[in-house]
């Protein structure tokens, strides 16, 4: 069953991808961080390497994944996303971590 996942991008990546704040990503099969990011990077190849390593697929250290008030950053990336994200009621938020002074 395909899912239409809403993804909110940080402002620098909106500029890079020439999108608005939110993009919709159509995912087949399980809606997980892996499948959403795979599809996102296929639709917007300029984002490759900016969210996760292009080879290892490891999340970049200062990137975070939030949804439904939870931090999913440390979860296994193959885990299903929360139902409200899969249903499109809530977005998956890709966030640059607070790392300033």
């Amino acid at each position: 069953m395909p899912y239409l996942i809403r993804v909110v991008l940080p402002i620098p990546l909106q500029s890079l991808a020439k999108t608005g704040r939110e993009v919709a990503v159509r995912v087949e099969g399980t809606a997980s961080l892996d499948t959403v990011l795979d599809t996102l990077e296929t639709s917007y190849p300029m984002l490759r390497g900016t969210i996760r390593d292009q080879v290892t697929k490891q999340r970049r250290p200062f990137m975070r994944f939030f949804a439904c008030g939870e931090d999913l950053s440390q979860e296994p990336t193959s885990n299903p996303l929360p139902e409200m994200v899969a249903s499109g009621e809530e977005p998956l938020r890709i966030v640059g971590a607070m790392a300033g002074g």
């Binding site: 620098p12 890079l16 390497g49 900016t50 969210i51 970049r60 990137m63 640059g96 971590a97």
Partner: peptide
């Protein structure tokens, strides 16, 4: 580049 998003 930057520390958040790496190299472009």
């Amino acid at each position: 580049s930057n520390d958040w998003f790496g190299q472009v």
